[in-house]
Computed example of a mutant assay.
Amino acid sequence: MPVLWHYCRHTPHSYERADYLEALAVIDPSGLDDAYTESLWDCEERARLLAIASAPHNPQILHRIAVLRDDPMETPDVRAAAGTRLTP
């Protein structure tokens, strides 16, 4: 698993981060809170979607998800996922 963490953090291809994050979650879903939190700012839509679904529940995270929901420049899928996550 350390190899996957290394690739996830240092890949030269941004589109691969979501794949590494998914693989890490399958192998051991514990301990990914920081990775999901960081992924809320990722340039890749799939990484942001994973983060919206799995980031820890706390006020700072929920604020960031609300920003994604309300951002008119964000993709429709990310805005919808963020809206769903914030719906009580």
Score class of each variant (00 low, 15 high):
40 L>C: 09
37 T>Q: 15
36 Y>R: 04
75 T>E: 08
18 A>Q: 07
30 S>M: 09
28 D>C: 14
65 I>M: 12
39 S>G: 05
72 P>L: 02
69 R>H: 15
77 D>P: 00
60 Q>M: 14
47 A>W: 00
25 A>T: 05
59 P>N: 09
36 Y>M: 02
66 A>W: 05
16 E>V: 06
57 H>A: 05
78 V>D: 08
12 P>V: 01
62 L>I: 03
63 H>Y: 15
47 A>N: 12
74 E>C: 12
59 P>K: 14
63 H>V: 00
22 E>K: 08
24 L>Y: 07
34 D>A: 08
69 R>S: 10
14 S>Y: 15
11 T>L: 12
66 A>I: 03
37 T>R: 05
35 A>Q: 09
30 S>R: 12
49 L>D: 00
64 R>L: 01
26 V>P: 03
24 L>Q: 05
6 H>T: 10
23 A>G: 04
37 T>C: 06
68 L>C: 08
42 D>F: 01
62 L>Q: 09
17 R>A: 04
5 W>I: 15
50 L>Y: 12
25 A>P: 03
8 C>I: 12
73 M>V: 12
7 Y>F: 09
42 D>R: 00
61 I>M: 08
14 S>K: 11
77 D>W: 01
75 T>A: 12
58 N>H: 06
28 D>G: 09
9 R>A: 07
68 L>K: 08
5 W>N: 07
29 P>Q: 11
9 R>C: 12
16 E>Q: 15
5 W>C: 03
21 L>I: 15
12 P>F: 06
71 D>Y: 13
77 D>H: 00
67 V>C: 07
65 I>C: 04
27 I>Y: 15
78 V>N: 02
49 L>P: 04
63 H>S: 06
38 E>V: 10
37 T>L: 05
70 D>K: 13
24 L>T: 08
33 D>T: 08
16 E>Y: 06
63 H>E: 14
70 D>R: 10
17 R>I: 07
48 R>P: 02
67 V>P: 01
69 R>K: 15
52 I>V: 15
61 I>F: 01
23 A>P: 06
13 H>Y: 09
61 I>W: 02
12 P>Y: 01
38 E>C: 06
12 P>L: 07
66 A>M: 04
30 S>K: 06
15 Y>F: 10
30 S>I: 11
35 A>N: 12
68 L>A: 05
41 W>M: 08
18 A>D: 03
15 Y>E: 07
69 R>Y: 02
65 I>T: 11
64 R>D: 02
38 E>R: 01
43 C>H: 11
69 R>L: 06
5 W>F: 14
31 G>P: 00
17 R>S: 05
